[in-house]
Design a protein around this nucleic acid. Sequence first.
DNA 1: CGATACCTGAGTAAAACACTCAACAACAGC
DNA 2: GCTGTTGTTGAGTGTTTTACTCAGGTATCG
Lengths: 148, 148
Amino acid sequence: MLLSTKGDYGVRAMIDLAKHAGEGPVQRSEIARRRQIPESYLDHLLAQLRRAGFVRSTRGPSGGHELAKPASDINLLSLLEALEGSLAPLGCLEPAVGEEATESICGQNWVWQEIYDEMRARLAAVSLAELVEHEREHERQAVISYNI
Amino acid sequence: MLLSTKGDYGVRAMIDLAKHAGEGPVQRSEIARRRQIPESYLDHLLAQLRRAGFVRSTRGPSGGHELAKPASDINLLSLLEALEGSLAPLGCLEPAVGEEATESICGQNWVWQEIYDEMRARLAAVSLAELVEHEREHERQAVISYNI
DNA sequence: CGATACCTGAGTAAAACACTCAACAACAGC
DNA sequence: GCTGTTGTTGAGTGTTTTACTCAGGTATCG
Protein backbone atom coordinates (compact mmCIF):
# COMPACT_ATOMS: atom_id res chain seq x y z
CA MET A 1 0.00 0.00 0.00
CA LEU A 2 1.59 3.17 -1.21
CA LEU A 3 -0.69 5.54 0.72
CA SER A 4 -1.20 5.38 4.47
CA THR A 5 -4.14 6.91 6.28
CA LYS A 6 -2.27 10.22 6.36
CA GLY A 7 -2.58 10.70 2.63
CA ASP A 8 -6.15 9.48 2.66
CA TYR A 9 -7.37 11.52 5.63
CA GLY A 10 -5.31 14.56 4.67
CA VAL A 11 -6.81 14.80 1.21
CA ARG A 12 -10.32 14.20 2.56
CA ALA A 13 -9.80 17.06 4.99
CA MET A 14 -8.54 19.33 2.20
CA ILE A 15 -11.59 18.49 0.08
CA ASP A 16 -13.74 19.43 3.02
CA LEU A 17 -11.95 22.75 3.43
CA ALA A 18 -12.21 23.45 -0.28
CA LYS A 19 -15.92 22.73 -0.24
CA HIS A 20 -16.44 25.28 2.51
CA ALA A 21 -14.01 27.86 1.17
CA GLY A 22 -15.18 31.45 1.63
CA GLU A 23 -17.41 30.59 4.57
CA GLY A 24 -14.82 31.42 7.22
CA PRO A 25 -12.74 29.00 9.28
CA VAL A 26 -13.90 25.41 9.60
CA GLN A 27 -13.35 23.70 12.94
CA ARG A 28 -11.51 20.43 13.14
CA SER A 29 -14.43 18.80 14.97
CA GLU A 30 -16.67 19.43 11.97
CA ILE A 31 -14.10 18.05 9.53
CA ALA A 32 -13.55 15.02 11.72
CA ARG A 33 -17.25 14.28 11.96
CA ARG A 34 -18.08 14.83 8.30
CA ARG A 35 -15.07 12.91 6.95
CA GLN A 36 -14.90 10.22 9.63
CA ILE A 37 -11.41 11.03 10.86
CA PRO A 38 -10.26 10.66 14.50
CA GLU A 39 -10.19 14.20 15.78
CA SER A 40 -6.95 14.04 17.74
CA TYR A 41 -5.20 12.48 14.76
CA LEU A 42 -6.54 15.13 12.41
CA ASP A 43 -4.70 17.71 14.53
CA HIS A 44 -1.35 16.41 13.37
CA LEU A 45 -2.38 16.26 9.75
CA LEU A 46 -3.61 19.86 9.84
CA ALA A 47 -0.32 20.87 11.45
CA GLN A 48 1.59 19.21 8.59
CA LEU A 49 -0.62 20.86 6.01
CA ARG A 50 -0.14 24.25 7.66
CA ARG A 51 3.64 23.89 7.76
CA ALA A 52 3.53 22.98 4.07
CA GLY A 53 1.61 26.18 3.37
CA PHE A 54 -1.72 24.68 2.28
CA VAL A 55 -3.77 25.66 5.33
CA ARG A 56 -4.15 28.79 7.45
CA SER A 57 -5.39 28.34 11.02
CA THR A 58 -6.83 30.84 13.48
CA ARG A 59 -7.14 30.20 17.20
CA GLY A 60 -9.71 31.16 19.75
CA PRO A 61 -13.51 30.98 19.67
CA SER A 62 -14.95 30.90 16.15
CA GLY A 63 -11.47 29.93 14.96
CA GLY A 64 -10.64 27.04 12.67
CA HIS A 65 -8.89 26.15 9.43
CA GLU A 66 -9.17 27.33 5.85
CA LEU A 67 -7.28 27.01 2.58
CA ALA A 68 -4.26 29.27 2.30
CA LYS A 69 -4.66 29.49 -1.49
CA PRO A 70 -7.32 28.74 -4.10
CA ALA A 71 -8.24 25.08 -4.58
CA SER A 72 -7.36 25.32 -8.26
CA ASP A 73 -3.76 26.20 -7.33
CA ILE A 74 -3.29 23.04 -5.25
CA ASN A 75 -2.47 19.80 -7.03
CA LEU A 76 -2.74 16.31 -5.69
CA LEU A 77 0.96 15.50 -6.11
CA SER A 78 2.28 18.29 -3.90
CA LEU A 79 -0.46 17.59 -1.39
CA LEU A 80 0.34 13.90 -1.10
CA GLU A 81 4.08 14.48 -1.01
CA ALA A 82 3.59 16.93 1.85
CA LEU A 83 1.58 14.33 3.74
CA GLU A 84 3.39 11.12 2.88
CA GLY A 85 6.90 12.10 1.95
CA SER A 86 8.19 10.47 -1.22
CA LEU A 87 5.73 8.37 -3.22
CA ALA A 88 8.50 6.28 -4.80
CA PRO A 89 7.31 2.68 -5.19
CA LEU A 90 10.82 1.25 -4.67
CA GLY A 91 13.62 2.14 -2.31
CA CYS A 92 16.15 2.21 -5.16
CA LEU A 93 14.43 5.15 -6.89
CA GLU A 94 15.27 8.61 -5.60
CA PRO A 95 18.44 7.57 -3.76
CA ALA A 96 19.65 9.34 -0.64
CA VAL A 97 21.64 12.53 -1.06
CA GLY A 98 25.22 11.91 -2.09
CA GLU A 99 24.53 8.43 -3.43
CA GLU A 100 24.11 7.11 -6.92
CA ALA A 101 21.33 4.81 -8.05
CA THR A 102 22.31 1.21 -7.42
CA GLU A 103 20.82 0.10 -10.69
CA SER A 104 23.34 -2.65 -11.25
CA ILE A 105 21.64 -5.06 -8.86
CA CYS A 106 17.95 -4.16 -8.92
CA GLY A 107 16.89 -5.32 -12.36
CA GLN A 108 13.34 -3.99 -12.41
CA ASN A 109 14.21 -0.36 -11.68
CA TRP A 110 13.78 0.91 -15.20
CA VAL A 111 10.17 -0.30 -15.38
CA TRP A 112 9.27 1.32 -12.07
CA GLN A 113 10.99 4.54 -12.99
CA GLU A 114 8.67 4.80 -15.99
CA ILE A 115 5.60 4.00 -13.90
CA TYR A 116 6.67 6.48 -11.23
CA ASP A 117 7.13 9.27 -13.77
CA GLU A 118 3.70 8.64 -15.28
CA MET A 119 2.13 8.51 -11.85
CA ARG A 120 3.63 11.81 -10.74
CA ALA A 121 2.57 13.49 -13.96
CA ARG A 122 -0.99 12.25 -13.55
CA LEU A 123 -1.17 13.38 -9.91
CA ALA A 124 0.29 16.78 -10.75
CA ALA A 125 -2.45 17.27 -13.34
CA VAL A 126 -5.27 16.89 -10.81
CA SER A 127 -6.19 19.94 -8.73
CA LEU A 128 -8.06 20.05 -5.46
CA ALA A 129 -10.82 21.94 -7.25
CA GLU A 130 -11.23 18.97 -9.60
CA LEU A 131 -11.55 16.59 -6.68
CA VAL A 132 -14.30 18.73 -5.20
CA GLU A 133 -16.07 18.92 -8.55
CA HIS A 134 -15.83 15.16 -8.89
CA GLU A 135 -17.35 14.65 -5.47
CA ARG A 136 -20.23 17.03 -6.26
CA GLU A 137 -20.84 15.12 -9.48
CA HIS A 138 -20.88 11.87 -7.57
CA GLU A 139 -23.38 13.24 -5.06
CA ARG A 140 -25.69 14.32 -7.87
CA GLN A 141 -25.53 10.81 -9.34
CA ALA A 142 -26.40 9.32 -5.96
CA VAL A 143 -29.40 11.62 -5.53
CA ILE A 144 -30.72 10.81 -9.01
CA SER A 145 -30.47 7.05 -8.55
CA TYR A 146 -32.13 7.43 -5.16
CA ASN A 147 -35.07 9.27 -6.69
CA ILE A 148 -35.59 6.59 -9.35
CA MET B 1 6.91 2.36 -0.56
CA LEU B 2 4.75 0.00 -2.58
CA LEU B 3 7.33 -2.79 -2.87
CA SER B 4 8.98 -4.43 0.09
CA THR B 5 12.21 -6.40 -0.11
CA LYS B 6 10.18 -9.48 -1.00
CA GLY B 7 9.27 -8.09 -4.40
CA ASP B 8 12.76 -6.76 -4.92
CA TYR B 9 14.65 -9.89 -3.84
CA GLY B 10 12.15 -12.23 -5.44
CA VAL B 11 12.47 -10.65 -8.87
CA ARG B 12 16.26 -10.52 -8.56
CA ALA B 13 16.25 -14.24 -7.80
CA MET B 14 14.00 -14.96 -10.76
CA ILE B 15 16.28 -12.96 -13.05
CA ASP B 16 19.16 -15.04 -11.78
CA LEU B 17 17.31 -18.28 -12.49
CA ALA B 18 16.32 -17.07 -15.95
CA LYS B 19 19.91 -16.18 -16.71
CA HIS B 20 21.05 -19.70 -15.88
CA ALA B 21 18.08 -21.49 -17.44
CA GLY B 22 19.00 -24.77 -19.14
CA GLU B 23 22.12 -25.25 -17.03
CA GLY B 24 20.41 -27.46 -14.45
CA PRO B 25 19.30 -26.51 -10.94
CA VAL B 26 20.82 -23.43 -9.32
CA GLN B 27 21.49 -23.59 -5.60
CA ARG B 28 20.07 -20.99 -3.29
CA SER B 29 23.55 -20.23 -1.92
CA GLU B 30 24.69 -19.18 -5.38
CA ILE B 31 21.64 -16.98 -5.92
CA ALA B 32 22.06 -15.42 -2.48
CA ARG B 33 25.73 -14.63 -3.11
CA ARG B 34 25.31 -13.26 -6.63
CA ARG B 35 22.23 -11.15 -5.85
CA GLN B 36 23.14 -10.11 -2.32
CA ILE B 37 20.14 -11.66 -0.60
CA PRO B 38 20.21 -13.18 2.92
CA GLU B 39 20.22 -16.92 2.28
CA SER B 40 17.77 -17.97 4.99
CA TYR B 41 15.33 -15.30 3.84
CA LEU B 42 15.65 -16.40 0.23
CA ASP B 43 14.35 -19.81 1.31
CA HIS B 44 10.92 -18.39 2.03
CA LEU B 45 10.79 -16.40 -1.17
CA LEU B 46 11.67 -19.48 -3.22
CA ALA B 47 8.95 -21.41 -1.36
CA GLN B 48 6.43 -18.73 -2.30
CA LEU B 49 7.56 -18.72 -5.90
CA ARG B 50 7.33 -22.51 -6.02
CA ARG B 51 3.81 -22.55 -4.58
CA ALA B 52 2.83 -19.96 -7.19
CA GLY B 53 4.15 -22.26 -9.92
CA PHE B 54 7.09 -20.18 -11.11
CA VAL B 55 9.90 -22.33 -9.76
CA ARG B 56 10.62 -26.06 -9.63
CA SER B 57 12.96 -27.29 -6.88
CA THR B 58 14.84 -30.56 -6.53
CA ARG B 59 16.34 -31.80 -3.27
CA GLY B 60 19.42 -33.74 -2.48
CA PRO B 61 23.01 -33.25 -3.59
CA SER B 62 23.32 -31.30 -6.85
CA GLY B 63 19.74 -30.15 -6.27
CA GLY B 64 18.53 -26.58 -6.56
CA HIS B 65 15.97 -24.37 -8.25
CA GLU B 66 15.01 -23.64 -11.84
CA LEU B 67 12.24 -21.93 -13.76
CA ALA B 68 9.07 -24.01 -14.12
CA LYS B 69 8.24 -22.33 -17.46
CA PRO B 70 10.04 -20.22 -20.05
CA ALA B 71 11.09 -16.72 -18.98
CA SER B 72 9.08 -15.22 -21.84
CA ASP B 73 5.89 -16.71 -20.35
CA ILE B 74 6.38 -14.99 -16.99
CA ASN B 75 5.33 -11.37 -16.62
CA LEU B 76 6.33 -8.94 -13.92
CA LEU B 77 2.76 -8.34 -12.71
CA SER B 78 1.96 -11.94 -11.83
CA LEU B 79 5.40 -12.33 -10.31
CA LEU B 80 5.06 -9.31 -8.04
CA GLU B 81 1.50 -10.15 -7.06
CA ALA B 82 2.62 -13.63 -6.06
CA LEU B 83 5.35 -12.11 -3.90
CA GLU B 84 3.65 -9.04 -2.49
CA GLY B 85 -0.07 -9.75 -2.62
CA SER B 86 -2.10 -6.89 -4.02
CA LEU B 87 -0.23 -3.90 -5.41
CA ALA B 88 -3.15 -1.55 -4.84
CA PRO B 89 -1.84 1.88 -3.81
CA LEU B 90 -4.88 2.58 -1.58
CA GLY B 91 -6.86 0.45 0.81
CA CYS B 92 -10.15 1.52 -0.76
CA LEU B 93 -9.31 -0.06 -4.13
CA GLU B 94 -9.99 -3.77 -4.45
CA PRO B 95 -12.29 -4.03 -1.42
CA ALA B 96 -12.55 -7.16 0.71
CA VAL B 97 -14.82 -9.96 -0.46
CA GLY B 98 -18.46 -9.23 0.16
CA GLU B 99 -17.99 -5.48 0.44
CA GLU B 100 -18.64 -2.70 -2.00
CA ALA B 101 -16.23 0.08 -2.78
CA THR B 102 -16.63 2.89 -0.24
CA GLU B 103 -16.16 5.53 -2.86
CA SER B 104 -18.49 7.99 -1.23
CA ILE B 105 -15.96 9.07 1.36
CA CYS B 106 -12.53 8.67 -0.26
CA GLY B 107 -12.53 11.45 -2.83
CA GLN B 108 -9.29 10.62 -4.62
CA ASN B 109 -10.18 7.04 -5.50
CA TRP B 110 -10.98 7.65 -9.14
CA VAL B 111 -7.51 9.11 -9.82
CA TRP B 112 -5.77 6.19 -8.18
CA GLN B 113 -7.94 3.68 -9.93
CA GLU B 114 -6.71 5.09 -13.25
CA ILE B 115 -3.09 5.05 -12.11
CA TYR B 116 -3.46 1.52 -10.77
CA ASP B 117 -4.93 0.25 -14.05
CA GLU B 118 -2.12 1.83 -16.06
CA MET B 119 0.45 0.42 -13.69
CA ARG B 120 -0.88 -3.11 -13.90
CA ALA B 121 -1.04 -2.95 -17.69
CA ARG B 122 2.56 -1.77 -17.86
CA LEU B 123 3.78 -4.48 -15.49
CA ALA B 124 1.84 -7.17 -17.34
CA ALA B 125 3.58 -6.14 -20.57
CA VAL B 126 7.07 -6.79 -19.20
CA SER B 127 8.32 -10.38 -19.25
CA LEU B 128 11.09 -11.91 -17.22
CA ALA B 129 12.97 -12.48 -20.47
CA GLU B 130 12.90 -8.73 -21.09
CA LEU B 131 14.30 -8.04 -17.65
CA VAL B 132 17.19 -10.41 -18.35
CA GLU B 133 17.79 -8.82 -21.74
CA HIS B 134 17.80 -5.40 -20.10
CA GLU B 135 20.35 -6.51 -17.54
CA ARG B 136 22.61 -7.98 -20.26
CA GLU B 137 22.36 -4.70 -22.15
CA HIS B 138 23.29 -2.81 -19.02
CA GLU B 139 26.31 -5.02 -18.44
CA ARG B 140 27.53 -4.43 -21.99
CA GLN B 141 27.25 -0.67 -21.45
CA ALA B 142 29.25 -0.96 -18.25
CA VAL B 143 32.00 -2.96 -19.95
CA ILE B 144 32.26 -0.51 -22.84
CA SER B 145 32.56 2.54 -20.59
CA TYR B 146 35.12 0.66 -18.52
CA ASN B 147 37.23 -0.05 -21.61
CA ILE B 148 37.18 3.60 -22.69
C1' DC C 1 23.74 -44.69 5.41
C1' DG C 2 25.26 -40.10 5.40
C1' DA C 3 26.21 -35.90 3.24
C1' DT C 4 23.88 -32.43 0.79
C1' DA C 5 20.50 -29.92 -0.47
C1' DC C 6 15.63 -28.13 0.03
C1' DC C 7 11.31 -27.32 3.29
C1' DT C 8 8.64 -25.59 7.11
C1' DG C 9 7.11 -23.15 10.97
C1' DA C 10 8.15 -20.76 15.00
C1' DG C 11 10.32 -16.88 16.86
C1' DT C 12 12.14 -12.03 17.17
C1' DA C 13 14.21 -7.30 16.97
C1' DA C 14 13.19 -3.11 14.89
C1' DA C 15 10.53 -0.01 12.50
C1' DA C 16 6.23 1.99 10.91
C1' DC C 17 1.47 2.97 11.75
C1' DA C 18 -2.43 4.89 13.82
C1' DC C 19 -3.58 6.83 16.90
C1' DT C 20 -4.25 9.12 22.28
C1' DC C 21 -3.20 12.34 26.00
C1' DA C 22 -1.77 16.18 28.42
C1' DA C 23 -0.06 20.54 28.71
C1' DC C 24 0.26 24.85 26.49
C1' DA C 25 -0.78 29.19 23.63
C1' DA C 26 -3.78 32.50 21.56
C1' DC C 27 -7.84 34.80 20.80
C1' DA C 28 -13.02 36.51 21.44
C1' DG C 29 -16.33 38.24 24.10
C1' DC C 30 -18.04 39.67 28.27
C1' DG D 1 -8.46 40.97 32.54
C1' DC D 2 -10.86 36.71 33.19
C1' DT D 3 -13.00 32.75 31.06
C1' DG D 4 -13.89 29.57 27.85
C1' DT D 5 -13.09 28.06 23.28
C1' DT D 6 -10.26 26.89 19.91
C1' DG D 7 -5.74 25.59 17.83
C1' DT D 8 -0.45 23.63 18.74
C1' DT D 9 2.92 20.63 20.22
C1' DG D 10 5.41 16.78 21.77
C1' DA D 11 5.54 12.70 24.18
C1' DG D 12 3.77 8.25 24.64
C1' DT D 13 1.51 3.64 23.35
C1' DG D 14 -0.61 -0.52 21.52
C1' DT D 15 -0.72 -2.97 17.17
C1' DT D 16 0.91 -4.49 12.88
C1' DT D 17 4.29 -5.20 9.41
C1' DT D 18 8.88 -6.04 7.98
C1' DA D 19 12.87 -8.53 7.54
C1' DC D 20 14.86 -11.44 8.90
C1' DT D 21 17.11 -15.95 11.91
C1' DC D 22 17.03 -20.60 13.68
C1' DA D 23 15.99 -25.20 14.62
C1' DG D 24 14.36 -28.95 13.14
C1' DG D 25 12.60 -31.99 9.34
C1' DT D 26 12.49 -34.36 4.64
C1' DA D 27 13.92 -35.97 0.18
C1' DT D 28 17.68 -37.45 -2.77
C1' DC D 29 22.16 -38.92 -4.59
C1' DG D 30 26.14 -41.72 -4.36
